[in-house]
Design a protein around this nucleic acid. Structure first.
Lengths: 140, 140
DNA sequence: CAAATCCCGACTTTGTAAATAGGGTATTGA
DNA sequence: TCAATACCCTATTTACAAAGTCGGGATTTG
């Protein structure tokens, strides 16, 4: 069970924006460099995040991206859901149900995983990430 | 975030064996038909499950597969881990840690998801699935 | 106007899950 | 003993989505 790198990149990028919240726009290049992500690839992700309303963008010289809201108001779940599409572990959950008529025997399993993951990612905010991060000695 | 169909097929197949626990060996063909899985594909999964000790096999006429243990002693987690390899949502968790030196900012997120999913799947047994299943009216 | 920067669709590459194929081995029972 | 049944195992093919690249366009600033 893996998340795509989109989620990982996206969360890291948003974390970077959160670190600099209140300091004006941060350019794509900046974020990509800091988080070691391909700039062209990250661009696609940022566009999605913008369309979802999680970040705002400014064009032109000195332009870049900014969080639309304070870090404590942005859950990791909202980021992941935008980039991952859905957190459903199998297709049965969310929408059409499985082809096998009613419910499949495994539904109880996938549903519980689904609920649990959603619960976890909705409880963590960017602010939590910052606090966790500064608590340790990552300052190089 | 998706599980591979291996996990879904595997859980469903094991569920089928659980339903018939105590009735002797169930052939691959039988399981494949009941759960609508390609027989040749399911075979690969069953072999893995056998090597992991979760099922036993009997060759020859009347042969097939049987659970190695009672349904209440088989967790869904043990099945999924065999088939999925690992439940880690990103590569940072489990083993080598990420390339970015120490810890990545997102680690707190992925670690919590990992713990949570493992907790859920370890708590559900095949017996639970049977009970959940018979509780509903799937008898056609 | 030039430089910086975001915008966006189309395309290519790559990795791996999913599925198939086919020959081999053990067991049963007529 | 032989044929049928069923598991065993490796190799290969297919399918598809993620990951990454490309190139031209639009905006903003100075």
């Amino acid at each position: 069970m893996k998340f795509s790198t989109r989620s990982r990149y996206g969360v890291n990028a948003m974390f970077e924006l959160a670190l600099r919240y209140g300091e004006g726009a941060v350019s794509l290049k900046d974020v990509a460099d800091k988080q070691s992500i391909s700039e062209a690839y990250l661009e696609q992700l940022m566009i999605r995040l913008r369309k979802a309303g999680l970040v705002e963008s400014q064009r032109g010289v000195q332009g870049g991206y900014l969080l639309s809201d304070r870090p404590e108001n942005v859950s990791v779940g909202s980021i992941i859901r935008v980039l991952e599409g859905s957190v459903s572990p199998v297709d049965c959950i969310e929408g059409k149900g499985c082809q096998r008529g009613g419910t499949c025997p495994g539904r109880i399993v996938w549903q519980k995983i689904y609920d649990s993951v959603n619960d976890v990612i909705d409880r963590i905010t960017l602010q939590d990430m910052i606090e966790e991060y500064t608590k340790q000695e990552h300052h190089g």
